[in-house]
Amino acid sequence: MRVILNVVWLIFGGLWLALGYFLAGILCFILIVTIPFGFAAFRIGMYALWPFGQTVVEKPGPRPGALIGNVIWVVLCGIWLAIGHVVTAVAMAITIIGIPLAIANLKLIPVSLFPLGKEIVPTTQGGFA
């Protein structure tokens, strides 16, 4: 089921979403100072390519640099990314087939808001996670 959902996701928006995150990551690497944001953008892009069967968890330990970076990220682009994911999720949820895709889009909101200090790991549960 996950493979089918991932292929449908890839066709109906996941590929373009991931390409946008990869482009942002490349731009962050070019600007040198924003390299940590580039790594985060690539991590989110990989998650956006194949979201079913993966989840986001906090990295263990205190991360003061991640906290400061996340505050900067939210102010500059995180809020806009989150709004984009909500709007896209609403559009996908209009059809019954699009509801799992809308849920996957909503799963991307926390990591698009606060990407630093997060890790993408495979899920061990069944279903749409």
Results as ranks from 00 to 15, higher is better:
P36G: 09
G61P: 01
V71I: 11
Q54T: 03
L81K: 03
V71K: 03
F39W: 13
L49E: 01
W50K: 04
V74R: 13
W50M: 05
V33L: 12
V71Y: 00
F42K: 06
V74L: 15
A41Q: 14
L49N: 05
I44E: 02
T55R: 10
L31K: 03
A48W: 04
A82V: 14
G65T: 08
W73M: 06
I68T: 15
G38Q: 12
I44Y: 05
Y47I: 13
M46F: 13
M46W: 08
F39C: 09
G65C: 00
W73L: 03
V71W: 02
W50T: 13
Q54R: 12
I83G: 09
Y47V: 11
G61K: 00
T55H: 13
V71M: 04
L67A: 10
L76V: 13
V57Y: 13
I32H: 06
G38I: 02
G53C: 07
I83R: 11
V71F: 02
I79T: 11
P51E: 04
V33F: 09
G65H: 02
N70Y: 11
A82H: 05
G38Y: 02
G38N: 07
G45T: 10
R43M: 15
L31N: 03
G65N: 01
Y47H: 14
G65Y: 00
L49T: 05
P60R: 15
